[in-house]
C-alpha cells in the first residue's frame, strides 16, 4: 500500500515528466526510477530535482553520489522528502 506521500510523488513525476501513458499504479516504489524501471535519463533527474525544490523546498548538497542514492527509487525519494521538507 502506497503512502499518501508516495502517491503524491508519483503524480509529481508523471506531471513533471509528461509521462502521459503512465498511471501512478505503473510506478513500483522499489524499482529503480532511472535507466531500468521507468527508464528516465539524467536530464529527467535534473527536471525532477527542480520540481522537488519547487514543491517541497528541498535543497540537495552538491555531492552527486548522495543525490544518486536519493533518486534511486520512489521509496528513497519519499524518504528524502519526508526527512527534508520540514527541516
Amino acid at each position: 500500500m502506497a503512502s499518501p506521500l508516495e502517491h503524491e510523488l508519483k503524480q509529481l513525476i508523471i506531471e513533471t515528466l509528461e509521462l502521459e501513458d503512465t498511471t501512478p499504479e505503473d510506478i513500483d516504489p522499489d524499482e529503480p526510477l532511472f535507466v531500468e524501471g521507468l527508464g528516465l535519463d539524467s536530464i529527467d533527474a535534473l527536471e525532477l530535482g527542480l520540481a522537488l525544490q519547487k514543491t517541497y523546498g528541498i535543497q540537495l548538497e552538491a555531492e552527486s553520489e548522495e543525490a544518486r542514492r536519493h533518486f534511486a527509487s520512489l521509496r528513497s525519494l519519499a524518504a528524502l522528502v519526508e526527512a527534508r521538507r520540514n527541516a
Binding site: L50, Q59, L60, A62
Partner: peptide, 13 residues
C-alpha cells in the same frame, strides 16, 4: 563538468 540535480537546484534557486 557534470551537472547534478543538486547543481541544477542551485542554479534554479
Amino acid at each position: 563538468s557534470d551537472i547534478s540535480p543538486a547543481t541544477a537546484m542551485q542554479l534554479a534557486a
